[in-house]
Design a binder for these strands. Structure first.
Lengths: 205, 205, 205, 205
DNA sequence: TATGAATGAGAATTCATTCAT
DNA sequence: CATGAATGAATTCTCATTCAT
């Protein structure tokens, strides 16, 4: 019966990934040594290779897990709000909350992993596309309902919206000051909704 | 001080930097070997070390030179346009033109160098601050003149504007399609000026 | 002493040895991993170590078993033939038959195991000595009976005879062509009996 | 002008090969570590890789050099003797002399290198074929001139002759006693010429 | 007994940097 | 100044062996 074993196996896998995130956050992507990840995860060097084909494979898994967690939350948000304007605001808040929650993870995410290795790029593209798709869907629906101006294509708008949020996140990660990322949400919402030509006045929230 | 020699020295330095950009663009930041840079520059491996302290130092120089070239152009643009709205549009166009001009350099810039090494980050911050300062100055002036809404701080706006442009640039670098980056300029201008609450209609240009 | 258990124990031991032969034949001596032997034998990695002290020990056992099987047959042959000339011919045929029977095993034997590890060498020497002794006994008796010329010492002759047969075997193992090794027997007999100065004409068989 | 450099390069290459032979002879083929070869050759580990692609490549080179040296001598011998019988005797002596000259080298040769790695085998086959060809040529000429019986194909005979010599060499390498390999030459000549059915009596030499 | 996940010592290889020419 | 051969520290990955279950 595999259940038990699979459970243990997955748990150790997670443990290793956690260790990897920790080390990468501390030392940076390329300065990260497999042996350090092993130590951080509390396993032997060789154990890493029972769970991951290679160092690169491990790093890809780190990235994948993080991105998937992020997307799951973002996509769930879509169901929670009914009108596009509210959905968009929720999406913006979630993006910043998600990234803002764990600075370590965010550092890995914003600074190191995302743009580094060719095959990470591929993956990055795939997952990023999912993100942009989700966002574009909201924007498209909003344009059809008249909530947003329709003079720019939703896909293009999605990129620019992501750019705004991503830059805020990166700035936060790299900045020394200890402000909360979520505190940028209001400004971002103002900026973005205005850029989208929202007819309605900003929500009271 | 022998001017002649300094001249030659600087020329070879530039040659090496050119080689470095070429190799980094082709192989990526971490896959780049000093010996490959040397070959690309047509010098011996050891010669690199007569001009740069270390490999990291070389890479920082690559980055610095590129960023400075970029800023020089952007800051010059400020003098060429008189009103903040026009300045902003020029700034946007310049950003995208600059990045769009040399896809190789852009790749180094967007994908590899910017977010990789701790001390590159420091540098990055310094230069990026200069960029954001320049942009914030325009925005501030615009807010004072009533060209832009003044409900968000210029520094915050500058980040978000940079985010939009940067994301467009990154997307362009990573995309396979061979569209021209400048062609995104119109959309970016629409998006951004609307976000800034520009009162005037878009310029005919 | 519990015969039943010993029986089972020996059976599993044989199973493991069979697996080892298979893997070694396929991958070569040094490319063989303990885990692969385990898989081929249908047991867990750890189980190997319940039957063999170490990997080297396992390999020595493989060799020993094969050599013993070989010698048993060879020595039996001595009883079956009465005169030295016939014994010699039978010996030659047996050598080539034995090796020729199982190309897999022969490959392990000729190519990999025999000359590889120091303590395998010792063992090899021991068993090889038994082989050479058996052969020398035949030759010695033949010399005494006048069947073979007696101008060279039997031990020396035995080596050279072994050399002829061994080289034929090695050539066969390494050759791509699928001829039967036994078909070389006639040539070998001609060559060797002539070298020994046999007075009688070759037997009709 | 390359001559000087090539000279130096080749010299160092030889130095490394010499070191490799020494270590392989001492520790055996698979127990040989690159770092040990480096130390034996008096160079740094990395230097090995300036002259050889990989460890396997280095070992192949060791083998190739040895085999070529051997063949050169053997083939020269052909020119020195006029009649096939004398040529054969010279060949036998040379084989045993060559191997007997340097026990270290012979150990590498007989025990380790020859039969170990797949691609070494290929090489081995190629060079061994050249050896067998040379020998077969002598035998063939001898058969045509009536010096040797012609009832067995020269190629087949060559293998068996090689087997005799090779076995004597292997026995010598593995034996503890300190006899000279060349002292086996007379016996080998007696055995082989008789096996070939030489009409003439053994030479006085 | 049997298992197989975990271990960690060990090995090949790379590549930034040096320095004799 | 320029060279590029040499260096050797550093790193990834393998695999024989162990031991808790």
């Amino acid at each position: 019966m595999p259940p038990r074993k699979v459970k243990l196996r997955d748990e150790k896998r997670e443990t290793i990934l956690d260790g990897a995130v920790r080390v990468i956050a501390a030392k940076g992507f390329h300065r990260t040594r497999v042996s350090e990840v092993a130590k951080a995860a509390g396993v032997a060097d060789g154990t890493i290779y029972l769970y991951f084909e290679s160092k690169d494979e491990l790093l890809r898994a780190v990235y994948e897990r993080a991105m998937n967690r992020f997307l799951e939350r973002g996509l769930l948000a879509l169901a929670e709000a009914s009108d596009p304007r509210a959905q968009l605001e929720r999406f913006i808040q979630l993006h910043l909350e998600c990234v803002g929650e764990d600075r370590e993870l965010a550092a890995v995410f914003q600074v190191d992993l995302r743009k580094s290795i060719p095959f990470l790029q591929e993956l990055s593209l795939g997952l990023l596309q999912r993100y942009l798709d989700a966002l574009a869907t909201i924007l498209d629906r909003g344009q059809r309902k008249g909530s947003f101006l329709a003079d720019l294509p939703p896909r293009e708008l999605a990129k620019m919206v992501f750019g705004v949020l991503d830059e805020l996140a990166t700035n936060w990660v790299l900045s020394e000051r200890n402000y909360r990322l979520e505190s940028s949400a209001a400004d971002a919402i103002t900026f973005i909704t205005r850029a989208l030509g929202c007819s309605q006045p900003p929500r009271s929230n």
